[in-house]
Amino acid sequence: MDSLILYSLAGILLFCTGLYGVFFIAHLLKRLMAMNIMAAGVFLILIVIARRNAEAFPDPVPHAMLLTGIVVAVSATAFACAIARRYVDITGRTGVDEEDAS
């Protein structure tokens, strides 16, 4: 069980790190990575939940959630990459934050 707690704590650490990054990093690519780090944190906790009972077969529902979550996160990341790529092409900037809001 101790290792599971360790995993959970790592998950939370990842989630919080990512959360900070999404809000406070300007560079688009780094922000996207921060977003994925958040996701990784959540997925880690999901794995822990599925594996709590060491003897029996792991709980398949969190696994399915995990798979779905990964696909969704990948889709969103790809979408974001497309926008970011286009944005960088047009503006030559790597972040949206210094941009004027109007």
Partner: peptide, 26 residues
């Protein structure tokens, strides 16, 4: 594109935050 990017970041962070709650409840 700038607006969409900003929106996407917040939307995704929001979803992840929500998903963490779902996971904890499960």
């Amino acid at each position: 594109l700038g607006a969409g990017m900003r929106y996407l970041m917040v939307a995704m962070a929001g979803s992840m935050s929500y998903l963490l709650g779902v996971v904890l409840l499960y």
